[in-house]
Design a protein around this nucleic acid. Sequence first.
DNA 1: AACGGAAATT
DNA 2: AATTTCCGTT
Length: 151
Amino acid sequence: HKKLLAAKCFSLKAFGFTTCSPPPAVLFPDWAYKPAWSPGSRQVQLWHFLLELLGRGEGGAIGWGGEWGEFVIRDPEKLARLWGERKGKPHMNYDKLSRALRYYYNKRILHKTKGKRFTYRFNFSKLILVNYPGYPAPLFHQVTSMLSHFS
DNA sequence: AACGGAAATT
DNA sequence: AATTTCCGTT
């Protein structure tokens, strides 16, 4: 149960929040409270992880690009290594990580910037609506202001 | 490098 | 369900 709580706080971090002070019960949809073995439950998602690194300006492996929501993977194998460490998959590499990114195309979470090497783009509007249907309006504004980075 | 099918994993 | 693994094709 403690692990699930950590996952909730991590999701907060993914959107640029450093505390869990607003009650998690208000912030998270039902699936966040399901046990790990339950169908439909999840733990750390790849897009959480990417936003976490981008949010703290990690600098090395990944960084924001020029367009709205666009990001560039500067060191693909390093990013894969970090992701593998987070998920406990020591044999993770960019070939496999990028397959997971391509599965995001149909989910409307990500989009490829064609012609730009290692460059993808978040569909931020969909991201909030699709994954956090009951997102409270004040937090939505906090998220969008964090992302105004690009305006 | 990037794509996407297919099967396996958790 | 969300990847992970593998791999043939563009």
